[in-house]
Amino acid sequence: MLAMLTAIACDRNQGVDGTIKVGSKDFTEQFILGEMYALVLEDQGFPVERKLNLGGTPVAQAALESGQIDLYPEYTGTALLTVLKLPATSNQQQVYQTVADAYQQKFNLVWLEAAPLNNTQALVMTKKGSGKYGVKTISEMAAQASELTMIGPPEFEAREDGLPGLQKAYSDFKLKQFIPADPGLRYQILKDGQADVAVAFSTDGEINAFELVLLADDQNFFPPYQVAPVVRQETLTKNPGISNALNALAPKLTNETMQRLNYEVSGKKREPAEVAKEFLAQEGLLKKP
């Protein structure tokens, strides 16, 4: 009888192929979140394989659907617009429920609890640039777009929640130039004056560290981007403990917290795994030393 109970308990902590494969996309916040998910699960006794830095949204989504990974952090706004290609809305709960229902029906994927943080896309300028052009809102930026160079991730040029959507919402403006660049290069190029506007995320640590001006989204274009683990139903059914482990982390992740943690990596050049473990230990989310 004891042997049978032991076998059942062990099976509960086994993934589809004996491990939980944790993925992430290819930028700082995703590295940190991916490490957090992996560390929390390992602390609960799950064997984990890290498959971080997969690439952009289409790559991560395909890996999840095909079973190359079992879960990864995703944003509600990205799921709504990029994956599901549904209309944008600014209602956080409505967006979460819409994507959770659709992912279950279309992909057999489960959204766990979303964090309070809203890593919405944003546009920023230096204080000098903002003052020079008199720009503090996206409408004011759009009015002078033909004089301005914008820098951002390559996919921003094509995403519906990127440049095409902005142009529809803000008078079909035309930029002087758009520079596609690795996310890690945006802020230095902006500071060096090679671009006037940068595509940002509201949890980027550089916004406060560099005293940048966050342009007001006065047409409420950008949808909410709460983050949550998206998990294969097959994995979750076999490993129900995943839900409690990762849901305990969600309430700890606020905009202010992620700005600070992101800058530890992007600004201070610390390793994402080190930053993630330090935070989890401070918050009492790791039982093992």
Rank of each mutant, 00 (worst) to 15 (best):
I69Y: 00
S66W: 01
L86H: 04
L112Y: 05
M125S: 12
Q97K: 11
L80I: 07
S66T: 14
Y72M: 11
S66M: 07
V99M: 06
Q68L: 13
A102N: 08
Q92V: 13
A100D: 07
E74P: 02
L123C: 09
V83Y: 01
G129N: 14
G67V: 07
G129I: 07
A88P: 02
L64Y: 03
E74L: 15
E74F: 11
G77K: 09
G67N: 07
A79L: 15
I69M: 02
T89A: 09
A115L: 04
T126N: 10
A88R: 12
K85V: 09
Q92S: 05
N118R: 09
K127D: 10
T120H: 14
A114K: 09
K106L: 08
T126D: 06
L117E: 13
N91D: 15
E113I: 00
Q105T: 13
S66Y: 06
D70R: 04
E65C: 05
Q94A: 08
W111N: 13
D101M: 02
E65V: 15
T82G: 01
T89D: 12
A100P: 02
A122R: 12
T78H: 10
T98M: 09
L112W: 06
Y133D: 07
K127A: 13
V59G: 00
L112I: 02
A102W: 00
I69E: 01
Q94K: 13
Y96N: 06
D101Y: 00
L84R: 02
Q92H: 09
Q121R: 12
E113A: 14
N108S: 13
L117A: 15
Y133V: 03
Q104S: 11
L80W: 04
F107G: 00
Y72L: 15
K128T: 12
Q92R: 10
Y103G: 02
E74D: 14
G67F: 04
V99Q: 05
V124H: 08
Y72S: 13
L86D: 04
D101T: 15
E65G: 01
Q68Y: 08
K127H: 12
T82L: 02
L117Y: 07
Y72Q: 10
P116H: 06
Y103W: 14
V95Q: 01
T98Y: 09
W111H: 10
Q94Y: 03
N118H: 06
Q97E: 14
Q61Y: 10
A102R: 15
G77C: 08
P116K: 09
S90K: 11
L109D: 03
D70N: 14
K127P: 02
L64M: 07
Q121P: 02
F107D: 11
Q97N: 13
A63H: 13
Q61L: 07
L80A: 08
V110D: 04
A114F: 10
Y96A: 06
V59C: 03
S130C: 12
A100V: 00
L80P: 04
N108D: 15
S130Y: 05
T120V: 11
S90C: 00
Q68W: 03
T82N: 14
L109P: 03
Y96I: 13
L112S: 03
G129E: 10
L86S: 04
A79P: 00
L80G: 01
K128G: 01
Q105W: 00
K128V: 12
